[in-house]
Write a protein that binds this DNA or RNA. Structure first.
Lengths: 149, 149
DNA sequence: GGAAAATCTACCGTTGACGTGAGAGTCGCG
DNA sequence: CGCGACTCTCACGTCAACGGTAGATTTTCC
């Protein structure tokens, strides 16, 4: 268990208003992401949310996956969980007390996670690629005709 | 004005049930696509819809753009309108009576349409590409560590 | 410490892309 | 031409991803 989420840290924590402003999303969106378990901001004694820089990075990641890759929040949840688990693995791996056998196991899990993600993304890329090829061919034919005239 | 849409043709026209079955979508979806103007099936005297092979191809295209590229139906409407206009241009271009000056104009419009589409798709592809690169690097590092152990 | 500003928790509204009947009309086949 | 299967048009329901508002608390700042 890390300190992240639930308890206040000593960094520069922002209120939800400042966080929303800074991340370029609405407060409602931040609360919604939390509701879905995508982010876990800290909370004051009174119940107000406090966002760390890491929370904001996470939000940025969410928006990126959403806008650029067209993932929905469920898919994003999978991606983030995947990345979280990978970070966790990394830490356990670096731990002095982790035995070599366990390390090998962690690496394999990590590889499996990344590979699976890669397959998903690669499929999308292939679709885009062939779409682009069609466009390029069309453009090429038009250019040829223009040169011809 | 072609005969497509509104009037029945002499091909193999299918009922909405058969069309839905064949296209792998629901009847509701077919009616919805029509409502949005994405397809224009023929209609019998009694008011039943009749789908041509071209209609089905169009539906397939819609599903492809939706599922593989993550476009919404509004974006797809633009793509389809774009492709329709391109086909129109092609016909006008091939028409004997079209003067050369007009032909050049049509080619330029065509090129502009295709180029604009290309820019949109290319942007998406770049995002995917960099995501893939990240994954590949991660995978590579894991593999290196596994070999190291 | 007290008022103004910010946040909180519900809870209802909205848009996109259909799902799901209800009730009436249409099609095709013997 | 009859009748069972199919299709039609409303019209309300749903799920995702928030938007917006109300009324109650909290935080902030002087």
């Amino acid at each position: 268990m890390t300190t992240t989420g639930g308890v206040i840290e000593h960094e520069s924590l922002m209120s939800i208003g400042a966080a929303a402003q800074s991340a370029g999303v609405t407060e409602r969106a931040l609360r919604y992401y939390q509701e879905l378990g995508l982010i876990k901001p800290g909370v004051t004694a009174g119940g107000s949310r406090r966002y760390s820089r890491r929370d904001l990075e996470r939000v940025a990641r969410i928006r990126e996956l959403q806008a650029l890759l067209g993932f929905n929040l469920d898919e994003i949840a999978v991606v983030l969980a995947n990345e979280d688990r990978t970070a966790e693995i990394k830490e356990a791996y670096l731990d002095e007390e982790t035995p070599d056998s366990r390390r090998r196991q962690l690496l394999e899990e990590s590889l499996e996670l990344a590979s699976q993600m890669r397959r998903t993304v690669e499929a999308k890329r292939l679709a885009l690629e062939s779409f682009l090829d069609d466009l390029d061919q069309r453009i090429e034919r038009i250019r040829a005709k223009m040169a011809d005239a």
